[in-house]
Design a protein around this nucleic acid. Sequence first.
DNA 1: CTGAAAGCGCTTACAG
DNA 2: CTGAAAGCGCTTACAG
Lengths: 348, 348
Amino acid sequence: MTADNDKTRTRKASIDDVAKAAGVAIKTVSRVLNNEPNVREETRQRVLVAVKRLNYHPSPSARSLASRRSYLIGLVYDNPSGNYTIEVQRGALARCREGKFLLLLHEVTGAGEELTQDVMAFANQTHIDGLILAPPLSESEEIIRALDEHGLPFARIAPNDLKHRSPYSDMDDEGAAREMTEYLIGLGHRRIAFIIGRPGHYASGQRLKGYKAALKSHKIAFNADYVRQGDFLFDSGLEAARQLLALPTRPTAIFAANDDMAAGTLMAAHEMGVAVPDQLSVAGFDDAAISRTVWPPLTTISQPTYQLSYAAADLLLKSLLSGTPPKPVRLLHKLIRRASTGVLRNPD
Amino acid sequence: MTADNDKTRTRKASIDDVAKAAGVAIKTVSRVLNNEPNVREETRQRVLVAVKRLNYHPSPSARSLASRRSYLIGLVYDNPSGNYTIEVQRGALARCREGKFLLLLHEVTGAGEELTQDVMAFANQTHIDGLILAPPLSESEEIIRALDEHGLPFARIAPNDLKHRSPYSDMDDEGAAREMTEYLIGLGHRRIAFIIGRPGHYASGQRLKGYKAALKSHKIAFNADYVRQGDFLFDSGLEAARQLLALPTRPTAIFAANDDMAAGTLMAAHEMGVAVPDQLSVAGFDDAAISRTVWPPLTTISQPTYQLSYAAADLLLKSLLSGTPPKPVRLLHKLIRRASTGVLRNPD
DNA sequence: CTGAAAGCGCTTACAG
DNA sequence: CTGAAAGCGCTTACAG
């Protein structure tokens, strides 16, 4: 039983309590808490002691109401692959935490007008200060137009080439896909198949472009039979690979536009008794967790997903605080060699 | 150019604007928005028309400040397996959205006192109304004590047997593990190994108990060599399985306490050239996404992770609104048979 | 069924 | 360097 163990114990301390305890005006407490200048060091210390003693934590809602800022950032994503999404979440979450903003997740599913309405309803209801758009939402002209009309700042992760003043972070999808294809060519492969990513994703087209460019620069004829449409999900990779491996002259290497589809490709190979990598090399893209838990582990492109998301959040916060849109950020990828690729051993 | 296309366009409408437009007091607007009784239907309609016309969305911070509620729920989790975490997120998110609460995610990493401090700092800074504890945090006596002292309501997902009045959701881990073990016994296996989950998780102990109980009821002697410690992560399953498969008399079946470790077990079998399921049956637990993307697909226990989390959020919201702690909820599991288990074909 | 007043706990704008 | 006043946009408590 302490001296102040009375009924007031349950009520949270407010700025008034702190001001009274420190013998200053609430404005001074506010200055100390927000690191504003013009506070004498001795006064500052007195305030800090009172804050500590009263276990004071400023009310976010009072602060928001008075400052006309919610300190809330929204992260909107569609969810093609859970492996990818969780990294996107982590990156944005980390940056928001550092900046004392809170991150609100909003998973969407629809398309077109309905999707735009969904995003705008989320923004309206939560009164978020800004939004982070993960792909493929980062490419939606319709959403971008609606956000502009609404005057809501946003940052984009891996957007398409649409010109817009809002900040974004991206990587060189085309260059990375080209690099991977050239790596397979370097292993001696000539019959290299490609599984395209989800239609409508800018990255899908870029990766296909890189694949084609590598073939061309090595004078390997493009074979439409070796290119299949997927959607970034495991099942689509499984299905596409089943078809590819059933071709009369089957490919000796399959490059899937992401790791989930590459994992599906491995399963098709297992089903059909095709040895990886002895009879078939398989490559993915992302370096997601799944690339290390399949057999054999996948050769892939390490896409800096966490960093892309962190950077997008960083740019958004900077633009909110400065008012001017910062320059876009381009991050580097890396080819990771694992056991799923190799030179041909038993070509049939 | 509409008639009201002047500078006021950027300012958001407030409750005062709506009241003025509808010719009522703000209290009446508040009644309509919160579905309170005692509003004439005609008045109600007038208000709704004004809300629509002004595109009015109530300010969450003003509402929070006045009502002394943040309408914020925290979800705190440690992250042993990404596959599990994303389902936990989804379940809680879905329920909060329905209840017009916002969900704040907080991933923690530490342990002991530091961990408790981390959780409490999160609660203090955000002023959340309640907290959802995912395992193994749902078992921490220290955190529970701190939350009690703080007077913060919380719900637990799959907690241990600690008696506490706070609501929780769980499943029968012991029964499920027993069922899986008996299924393996039914296939003719006698040398059944078990890989234990992360130490300190209540579920880990319960699943081990179920495994032992099944052996006992079928009069199969318990062999300590066949039981290995894991931590729910892929690598620990890989390592444990490598050891098990290197035993002079190796097991014919391995039951891992979760899917990630079972996936690691499959990789060890691949590495060592042990055919699954012909020479070795492998079973997991969770029915996470990974159970369908490995080769062969895993026989596992479908743990209703999403529903457990949804239920915990549901119980928390109910207890916040009613003030009385609702009854705990127990959810059902299901054994999912896939290709990773079978009768022995080529015992060596 | 409806409303006027007070107040939630901060920041902004201003004064000294 | 410090502070008094006003106000952000709602809900609570009360009155009629």
